[in-house]
Amino acid sequence: MSDIIKAAAELLGQLRSNKPLVHNITNYVTVNDCANAVLAIGASPIMADDIGEAVDITAISSALVINIGTLNHRTVESMLAAGKKANELGIPVVFDPVGAGASRLRNETTRAILSEIKVSVVRGNMSEISFIAGLNANTKGVDAAEEDIASGDAAQAAVALAVAEKLECVAAITGATDIITDGKRIAAVSNGHKMLSDVTGTGCMTTALVGSFCGAGRDAFVAAVAGIAAMGIAGEIAFENAGSKGTGSFHMAIIDAISRLDEKILFERARINETYR
């Protein structure tokens, strides 16, 4: 059993015991799925995106998740204010740059968040993280472009490392193989099922899970690995139990699988390869 799998499983136990409050300023397409995923993994979700309370809610939370999936100027103000309060109090911030590279508003918001807020983890697809790295990103709306998907694990690792070093944070690129790095440690997670890409919001749910694990422990790298592996394992179990029924049943089965995930299942099913630079 590798050290990273053991650490991820132990963190899951801590999460279920501590039930951290996780503040999500996320998009309205997936907000219900994210809340249910956070609940299923054992944390407590709260979704407060009004500027009148975003800072106050952040102050009592164990982690803050910022997701720019459905942007408007009102919530951007709340994101920045909440992120600054989290930094002030030492609360981890997880950032999901949904669709970065697709529009001027998304690009400007991504740059503002990363320049004004110290993030603990940034999680996205290859196109989104490539944009943050300052590379040419072949974005396809909120999805990764085929060119970026086909770039391979080595290219993904190079981009993730560039972002981790640039922002001094954990950078995670999710895809067929998920790559997570803090600039020194690199983890490749091979869990998951291709049917996850047929359900809207699985990326957002993954980020919410990472936020939940960040709220339970101090090591953002382990938290990111654990959250991403948890989603991948849930996707595998959901396919085994309901994949033949269609995407609606598969969608519900994901939440079922997350709710039943425990240290033993993570131990037995996690496929994580960790290397060091």
Rank of each mutant, 00 (worst) to 15 (best):
D96E: 07
I66F: 02
R269L: 00
D178T: 02
E116M: 06
I91R: 13
L161A: 12
N125W: 10
N67T: 07
L89S: 01
A145E: 15
V121R: 13
I186Q: 14
G152W: 06
S61L: 03
V65N: 09
G235M: 00
G175N: 10
V210K: 00
D56N: 14
S120M: 05
D178F: 09
M79R: 11
I5K: 12
I41S: 08
D96Y: 08
G192E: 08
G52T: 03
G69F: 13
Y28E: 13
R74G: 04
A144Q: 08
A270E: 11
A270W: 15
S78R: 04
M1Y: 13
H251A: 10
I91N: 09
A257Q: 13
L15S: 08
I113Y: 02
N273P: 11
G83E: 00
L12I: 03
V121F: 01
A102D: 02
M205D: 02
A162E: 14
A242I: 03
L64Y: 02
A137F: 06
S61G: 10
G83Q: 10
R218G: 15
E77Y: 12
S244L: 05
C34M: 02
K6Q: 14
E147K: 13
I254R: 11
T202W: 04
V22Y: 03
F221H: 11
A187S: 14
G13D: 00
H251M: 10
G134H: 12
G201K: 10
A230G: 08
T30W: 06
A86I: 00
I228R: 12
V55C: 00
A164F: 00
M47L: 00
A158R: 06
V22R: 06
T275F: 13
N67E: 04
E10A: 14
H193L: 12
D262E: 04
D178G: 12
E108F: 10
G227V: 14
I228D: 00
R277H: 06
L15W: 08
G203N: 13
V31K: 06
M195E: 04
I113L: 08
V210A: 03
G246F: 05
V98F: 01
K85G: 03
C214T: 00
F221A: 11
L64Q: 07
A54S: 05
A154E: 07
I180R: 03
G215T: 11
I179K: 12
N67A: 05
N241V: 06
C204H: 10
A157H: 08
L261Q: 03
P97R: 12
L64G: 02
V65T: 09
H73F: 13
A238T: 04
A253P: 09
K184G: 01
G215H: 03
V55W: 05
A59R: 02
R185H: 11
I228K: 00
E236T: 09
D182V: 06
V119H: 05
R271T: 11
K140S: 13
H73Q: 15
V98R: 01
R74Q: 15
K194Y: 02
S17M: 07
N136M: 14
A224P: 09
A187F: 03
V29G: 11
R104Y: 08
G175S: 01
S244E: 02
I254H: 05
V29W: 13
R271K: 15
G235W: 09
G211F: 05
D219E: 07
S190Y: 14
